[in-house]
Structure formats: C-alpha cells, structure tokens
Amino acid sequence: MKILSILAVATFMFLQYCKQNRNTSSQKSENMNDTTQTEHYTFELSNKVTRQKVTFKNRYGIMLTGDLYLPKEQGTGPLAAIAISGPFGAVKEQSSGLYANQMAQRGFAALAFDPSYTGESGGEPRAVASPDINTEDFSAAVDFLGIQKNIDRKKIGIIGICGFAGFALNATAIDKRVKAVATTSMYDMTRVMSKGYHDIVTLEERTKILEQLGEQRWKDAEAGTFASGAILNPEKLKGDEPQFVKDYHDYYRTPRGYHERSLNSTGAWNATNALSFMNMPILTYIKEISPRPMLLIAGEKAHSRYFSEDAYTMAAEPRELIIIPNAVHVDLYDKVNIIPFDQLNTFFRENLK
C-alpha cells in the first residue's frame, strides 16, 4: 500500500506543492512595498485599510513574507496588533489576508503571513510543514510586530485558521508575549496526521505508515531530492467524495479561493511531510495558555468541529467556544457574513489592553 493511501483519511484535503516562491530580504517595515494593486488576492481590500508587504526572519533563519494591514485612521497612540496565518497549505492572499483586512478595519494592525517553506516565504525544500517551525513562525511574527514603532508590543494577539489554529495555540502556550489567542475551524494537525479523523488509525496501520515513510526516505536519499506526494485535490472531482472534500474543492479550486501560490490550490506536500507530525503532539501544554484568554470558533456542521470542542475541554479558563449555526468548515475561511468578526473585535479589544 502506498504511503498516502493510508494517510488519505487524515490528509485528503491537504494538497500542496507549488513550484514557485522567491526568497526575500529585509527586517524593518521601512522597506515595505505597496501590494494594493499588483498582486492577486481572493478578496477586496477595504478602502479603510492600507496593505504593505513585509519580510522578517524566524528563529531558524528562514525569511518569512507577510502583508501588514493598517487602519488608515490610526489615532494618536500605538496600535494593538494581531498575527494571522492559515489554513494549512494556504497563503496570505487567501483567508488569513481576509481576516487581517477585516481586523484592520476595526482598528488593529494585522499581519497575515506565509508560513515557512510555502507561499512567498523562504525555506528549502519546498512544500514542507513542521509542528516546531510552524509554531515558531507565529512567534517570529510577534517579533516583527513588536519592533514596529506604531505598535504596542504589550498588546499583541494571534489568530490561527484551520491547521494553523493548532500551531497558534501551541505558540501561545510557550510565548508569554501573546496576550490572547483566537482560532477558527481548528485542526490539530499532529493529531489528524498521526491518528486520522476521530482517531481511527490503529497501531498496526500507524506502524505501516512509518515503515513506508522510512522506505520513501531511502528513495529520496538515493535520488538526492525530495519526491512530491500525490495530488489530493484534483481540478475536477469524481462526484463520490465526502462532502467536506467537495467543500474544500469549492474554495481552493474555484475563483472563490484559488491562488496560484497556494499549495491547496495547486499540488501536494512532499511525500515524507507527515513524519514530524507523527509523534509531536502540539496541544500537550494547552492549559499553560491560561490565564490568558482563548476563543475557539467552529461551524456547527463542520467535520472538524470536534477539534475545537476537544481543545476547549483540555484548556483552562478563561476560554470560550462559539459554534456558528449551520456553518461548515470552509465557511469560516471567507464568508464575512458568517465569520463573527464583531465578536473577534470585542475579544481582542477587551484582552489586548
């Protein structure tokens, strides 16, 4: 059995490898470039907001690229700020940028960024994810925000979407500079990759997966390169896929959410991407987010709802779980009439002070 045939139940929607990406340089916002008209975004920029491209390094020396959204009416004092990333395999021109655009309209500085090894961010090889490095990406975004003259470093929060919701919680647990964290359509990527949906993968199946991943490493070592995994989000569906797969397709493979740099729109992770997720549970220390507040948001009909509910049960106070009536997982990617931005605004207003 091929590696990805066993993993399919856990990673069906996580498409990814786009043959692009340029490394960028510079650390300060003074070198930012205006991206309001020159790039493809899946949403309209608010006329109350400015957007500027920025770059910054994480602790591993990888250059990350983001878009910094600022309210045109900033007032006199430094701004509270929010770092945003996700979904897993998406880029800043998709959901995270939409969220940043919305939060900037409400008066926050908001940074939407591409994670390491994807989008416009650096890192080789491409199409790789890591529980450690992607957690660090959030802290690097906090670094960047906290050294800007117009931002109050004591008022920084983070939002994680989909798979980056789990990384956001993990980052908040260890990074005490983060004052509040919110998640939408949460996935715990280490859990779903190592155990499958609803933890159905058996020890025997897990052992086979690990053996096959090891065999793939031999092949990669002999070839001197990293093989790409199977494309899991084809341009056209057969029609008999699970509904949540159809929902992902409706976002990533249509004009609604398609972006040429998005792994979820164009390809697959490399074949051994799952390795580091197999034994590094990222929510082990979720209780240590307390006493800082946590807001978890999930769709009532989302296949991923249980991740948010379980995280809520594991966490300590203060915490809040909001279930959006009738919403599926991808509704919280871009449906601004469904995503509770006013509640997110209230949450961060009350806790970033």
Rank of each mutant, 00 (worst) to 15 (best):
L213F: 15
L203C: 04
G123S: 00
R349C: 10
I322Y: 14
E120T: 06
P242Q: 12
N326C: 08
M294Q: 14
Y117T: 00
R253F: 02
L15C: 14
I200R: 11
P325H: 06
G214F: 13
A274W: 12
L7W: 12
R177H: 02
L296F: 15
V49C: 08
P340T: 00
L263D: 14
T118D: 02
H259F: 06
R292Y: 11
G86E: 03
T207M: 12
K19G: 07
R126Q: 04
I156K: 09
A221F: 12
A298R: 02
P281W: 10
G257S: 09
A173D: 02
I82P: 00
D247E: 15
T254H: 10
S130G: 12
Y60N: 05
A311F: 01
I289V: 13
Y60W: 01
D331E: 07
E205P: 01
L237D: 04
V128K: 05
K28I: 07
M314F: 13
G107Q: 05
K48T: 05
A112L: 07
N23K: 05
W269P: 15
R22M: 01
F244N: 07
G160D: 08
L79S: 02
A104R: 02
A168R: 03
R22F: 14
L321R: 10
G163Y: 11
P318I: 12
Q27K: 11
S308Y: 06
K208T: 13
A315H: 04
A129C: 10
P291Y: 08
R217Y: 11
I156F: 11
